[in-house]
Nucleic acid binder design. Structure first.
Lengths: 230, 230
DNA sequence: TAGATTGTTAATCGATTAACAATC
DNA sequence: TAGATTGTTAATCGATTAACAATC
């Protein structure tokens, strides 16, 4: 049993999903030379209500000072530690099409806490090519990446048709954290964590609300129901 | 008041977010020549429990047949209609860096229901350049895109520093659906719908669970709490 | 101390789930 | 009719919110 409260009780998924935004807001305050913030100020910067922020932070521990607020650097450190960003996680991107290419160059992946250690592709025509200063390797490089570099996170940027096969290979070598950009559901064992980023799903959700507004403008919807909107 | 039940009562956000996945699964069945599915089969393909699927579909109406299942084409049409995909939504992508470039070429955006009508950038060096067969235009093309093409959805793929400014310009010309790839919170009026896709947030959430597994392996976590996992 | 703001409580709200009556 | 599967109910679970006691 640890002294860290979050180690004893699980942190709610909804809270974990917001911690990165709080961290980003804190980084913004730090860059502007602000050393202390209230829950009201931080919540506003992160786009949430202050009650929700305080509730979320209470799951990590008690890092504020009543009557004063939160020390920016200290809270940022505590959130970083909770998210596991005080170490660097080795990441491999698989699939060097348009999207994989952009991801390899995207600075969001080179942000603190992550390190792109490999770019992989099944297509032998791409092998040896340099993208963003990294040489593209074949899929059979996977086992040594795990053994030698401690590869922990796999990013799948292949077409949907090959995503499950690539996923199986990642799981087989012991990767248990997968970020899936392919538009398909991946089947994995219970101990593997898959998160999905799906551009067309997001567009379709926007289209739903857009259509709703259009119908409301026509008077086709019940005004009470439509006022709820989203 | 309409005969469509979904027009009277709002569909829960959680349900709307799953409709695209159901639609994709149905498309997969249709491609394999399957004309009828049970809630159990469809749920399995979409990665949810059948009870949740039936509950979700019940918000749209009663499109199944007891003892039989759902007719694939008919249900796909009903979901498409509910999502507003029976028409084409004009989309503009703003910011032609690495990511914007990839998005312009990404087939997910050319999928049924959406049409990329413009690529925009603030950098005059890029203007006139062709990307994926579309000429890059300056930001001041926005008003005419709305007036002439019915532009409805804006995709922001700029750096965080210019995202709010771009967003303000979109809102000013009447765009009320925005997909934001920039790692920042956007301030918008209540009637504007912003969805955010954030690569580094997703990685950070994965890192949290990855660290949790590593700590569990060390025995640093309470086994009961850790068994809950994610 | 007086003022300010946190951390927590309790109420509310929405989402999930299992079970089953309805019905093809 | 008998078997199968939907659509709905009711219970449970988790997340959000407002209010405020604790306390700096």
């Amino acid at each position: 049993m640890s002294a860290d409260p979050s180690a004893r009780r699980g942190i709610p998924d909804a809270t974990v999903a917001r911690l990165p935004e709080y961290l980003r807001a804190l980084t913004g305050f730090a860059e502007r030379g602000i050393t202390s913030v209230s829950s009201e100020e931080l919540a506003s910067a992160a786009g949430v209500r202050s009650a929700k922020l305080r509730k979320d932070l209470s799951h990590l521990g008690s890092y504020g000072v009543r009557g004063v607020g939160y020390e920016v650097d200290h809270l940022a450190y505590q959130i970083s530690r909770e998210l596991g960003l005080t170490q660097d996680w080795p990441v491999a991107i698989i699939g060097m099409g348009n999207l994989g290419h952009a991801l390899a160059a995207y600075s969001g992946f080179a942000t603190r806490g992550f390190r792109v250690v490999a770019l992989l592709d099944q297509d032998s025509a791409l092998l040896g090519q340099q993208i963003a200063g990294i040489t593209v390797q074949p899929m059979h490089a996977l086992p040594s990446l795990v053994a030698d570099q401690g590869l922990a996170i796999g990013v799948i940027a292949t077409p949907a048709a090959s995503a499950q096969h690539v996923c199986d290979q990642l799981v087989a070598v012991g990767v248990r954290s997968i970020l899936n950009f392919a538009p398909c559901v991946l089947a994995v064992p219970d101990d593997v964590d898959v998160r999905k980023v799906d551009l067309s799903t997001e567009l379709q959700i926007l289209a739903f609300h857009e259509q709703r507004r259009a119908l409301a403008a026509e008077g086709a919807l019940d005004p009470v129901a439509e006022a709820v909107g989203r």
